[in-house]
Write a protein that binds this DNA or RNA. Structure first.
Lengths: 135, 135
DNA sequence: TACAAATTTGTAACCATTGCAAATATATAA
DNA sequence: TTATATATTTGCAATGGTTACAAATTTGTA
């Protein structure tokens, strides 16, 4: 799917920087932080600034085409996959894994039965512990 | 239940500051941040410092008797209720609500079926949106 | 081409959190 | 009790991720 069209369809005017950032998110499932995106895009867009990345991520999150992952204390991470899935942070190797959430539990109404009448815009499921490789 | 015994049973040497902080967490379900705890305890313990609160919260979290809630970008919040439940942040009034998670879904194995072999120490479920009062 | 609006950029500030060493409190041994 | 070692607390300085802001650049439009 064309990234430029994807941005436009989601109400975001495409620019060189925005396209490059969304491309990066969609092709790197590493949940990058701002510094990692800066280092990665610096070569192809030498003038890119961290402020632009912060602004763009905020814009993406507002329009629902990126998720803010706040599982790490220090850094915000971002994910271009906005389908409901969980994130597991290994407290030993610091790697961040996606994990699948059983489809039959995706029914938010049932899972969060006490939130009737609340307008839920974003759901995040975080786990911390030790991963298989580090055990 | 006596807070001093509760700390001891969880491997934490009780001190005036630690007891006061755990007492505060257990009697105030407001998910306070460090500043709020500092302001609240300053009167009864005039010498208390923010560093002590940070250190103590880290200790509580490590021993599993408090949860770190990182749903807000700026501030860390803490919860003395470590049973699995969700947190909802209203993006309008900024209030943080607890919400009940259906008991039959508490089976982590089923919910997180793809995390077999991982040692899960902490699970957090966050939602953001607009609360009933603000709609 | 000229002008207006939107976007990007760099720098300075902000501020929550941590590092660190001195001060204080607590536990232990003689 | 007194002396000594250990643990805890404290205040201040430093860190570093994020944001504010205004200038510079790019884009859209007439």
């Amino acid at each position: 799917m064309n990234t430029q069209i994807y941005l436009t369809e989601n109400g975001i005017k495409p620019s060189v920087q925005r396209i490059a950032l969304m491309d990066y998110l969609l092709t790197h499932k590493t949940h990058p932080n701002v510094d990692e995106m800066y280092e990665a895009l610096h070569e192809q867009i030498p003038t890119i600034s961290r402020t632009t990345i912060y602004n763009t991520m905020k814009l993406f999150v507002k329009h629902g085409i990126a998720s803010l992952i706040s599982i790490e204390e220090k850094n915000a991470r971002f994910d271009g996959d906005v389908s409901l899935h969980g994130h597991f942070l290994c407290q030993n190797c610091n790697q961040l894994y996606d994990f699948h959430v059983n489809e039959k539990l995706l029914n938010i109404e049932e899972l969060f039965s006490s939130l009737d009448g609340y307008n839920i815009k974003d759901t995040q499921i975080y786990c911390k512990g030790i991963c298989k490789n580090c055990k």
